[in-house]
């Protein structure tokens, strides 16, 4: 037991690794603050495009969304980071992560927002239009707010997944929480830093998981 505590919950090691871990946590938060809005923006663009009825827009759009939902995010990231330099395009780790997340999480957010827009009765758009609002205004002021409200649990759930996913940036040596913990582990020969990173993720995200559980239960209750 002592050996186990020494290997995973060693406070001497934790104190030593603390500044490194804290810097990593900062990077994780910064990365999340960049990729979540980026994904939301991508999703919004895709969802708005999906309201166009022409098949020349719909089919390529569907293919785009399905392709980026089929590729594992890590594959996309490695392709951008390790592949594109061969085409003469050097991208930084941060740039590669931003592009990869824009493509991947944008597709997911796009599907959710598309479902949200579809859930708003057509009468809302018609009523707003008949009151003299332009298409853009009606979409922005009448349809989208209701759409977002309808799919809020899914949006939060996807955001949770996105924040968790930032950990794959460690693979391209971006010094976020997991990467820093691995570095600290290889210097100290002790698993405490990784355990500390896991605990940090849990403390950070547990409230969101709890919130989602409650929201999901409410949704089920409403359906009955």
């Amino acid at each position: 037991m002592d050996e186990f505590i020494d290997a995973f919950f060693n406070f001497g090691i934790l104190a030593e690794a603390w500044p490194i871990l804290l810097a990593g946590l900062g990077q994780t938060l910064l990365l999340s603050a960049v990729v979540v809005p980026l994904g939301l923006l991508g999703g919004l663009i895709l969802a708005l495009l999906s309201t166009v009825r022409t098949r020349w827009v719909r089919w390529p759009l569907m293919a785009w969304v399905d392709i980026f939902r089929s590729l594992p995010p890590l594959v996309l990231l490695i392709f951008i980071y390790a592949g594109l330099p061969f085409a003469g395009l050097e991208v930084s780790a941060f740039g590669a992560v931003a592009i990869g997340f824009f493509l991947n999480t944008g597709a997911y957010y796009g599907e959710i927002m598309r479902a949200g827009i579809a859930s708003v009765p057509a009468g809302q758009m018609e009523a707003a239009r008949s009151l003299g609002l332009s298409r853009g205004h009606a979409m922005w002021l009448v349809v989208l707010p209701q759409a977002v409200r309808n799919v809020l649990p899914d949006l939060i759930s996807n955001t949770l997944e996105v924040v968790k996913l930032t950990s794959i940036a460690a693979v391209v040596a971006l010094p976020e929480l997991l990467f820093q913990a691995r570095q600290a582990q290889s210097v100290t020969f002790n698993a405490t830093p990784i355990m500390a990173a896991a605990v940090a993720y849990f403390i950070l995200l547990w409230p969101v998981v709890r919130l989602l559980s409650t929201l999901e239960n409410k949704q089920i209750a409403r359906r009955n």
Binding site: E3, A7, L160, M195, A198, Y201, L205
Partner: peptide, 24 residues
């Protein structure tokens, strides 16, 4: 359930593969 919904999968993989050997 909450624990494994909150932890990133890669963190769990790294913990199992690189961390568990410390526990033998």
């Amino acid at each position: 359930v909450d624990l494994f919904r909150a932890l990133p999968p890669l963190v769990i993989i790294v913990l199992l593969f690189f961390g568990m050997p410390a526990a033998g």
